[in-house]
Simulated scan of single mutants.
Amino acid sequence: MSEATDATAGTAEGGAIVGRAMRATTSILGAYRAFIAHTQACEECRAEGVDCDDASRLRQLWRDVKAAQ
């Protein structure tokens, strides 16, 4: 499955992308990488210049992980 398809599925499934990132994230750096990788690949984020819903969730996950450590 391609990343673009995964992004579409994540939005439809109510945040599956964020769920996968949370399971894979064990550090501040991992959370930040997930956020940046998404924003670089997401057409909506790049075209609009603002975070889409998934990017907003990933950014919040990064902030939460950072605050917890």
Score class of each variant (00 low, 15 high):
residue 12 A to N: 00
residue 17 I to P: 06
residue 21 A to R: 01
residue 42 C to V: 04
residue 62 W to A: 03
residue 46 R to F: 00
residue 2 S to G: 14
residue 57 R to S: 04
residue 39 T to C: 09
residue 15 G to H: 07
residue 53 D to C: 04
residue 29 L to M: 06
residue 40 Q to K: 14
residue 66 K to G: 07
residue 39 T to M: 05
residue 6 D to H: 13
residue 61 L to K: 03
residue 41 A to E: 06
residue 6 D to F: 14
residue 11 T to D: 12
residue 11 T to N: 11
residue 8 T to G: 14
residue 8 T to A: 15
residue 37 A to G: 15
residue 61 L to Q: 05
residue 51 D to Y: 05
residue 53 D to Q: 08
residue 23 R to S: 11
residue 10 G to W: 01
residue 46 R to Y: 02
residue 18 V to F: 12
residue 47 A to M: 13
residue 60 Q to N: 09
residue 16 A to I: 02
residue 30 G to A: 05
residue 7 A to P: 05
residue 4 A to D: 10
residue 53 D to S: 11
residue 45 C to W: 02
residue 3 E to A: 15
residue 51 D to C: 11
residue 20 R to P: 08
residue 17 I to H: 06
residue 41 A to L: 02
residue 28 I to H: 09
residue 68 A to N: 09
residue 35 F to H: 09
residue 59 R to Y: 10
residue 31 A to I: 06
residue 55 A to K: 01
residue 47 A to V: 12
residue 25 T to Q: 04
residue 40 Q to L: 14
residue 20 R to D: 15
residue 40 Q to E: 15
residue 36 I to L: 04
residue 40 Q to M: 13
residue 31 A to Y: 03
residue 24 A to V: 07
residue 28 I to C: 11
residue 22 M to P: 04
residue 68 A to F: 04
residue 4 A to V: 12
residue 52 C to W: 01
residue 63 R to P: 02
residue 59 R to N: 12
residue 62 W to M: 07
residue 4 A to G: 11
residue 50 V to F: 08
residue 1 M to K: 11
residue 37 A to M: 12
residue 59 R to E: 07
residue 39 T to D: 05
residue 45 C to D: 04
residue 13 E to D: 09
residue 44 E to R: 10
residue 48 E to F: 09
residue 25 T to A: 02
residue 18 V to K: 08
residue 56 S to Y: 04
residue 48 E to W: 04
residue 49 G to M: 00
residue 34 A to P: 01
residue 2 S to E: 15
residue 66 K to V: 03
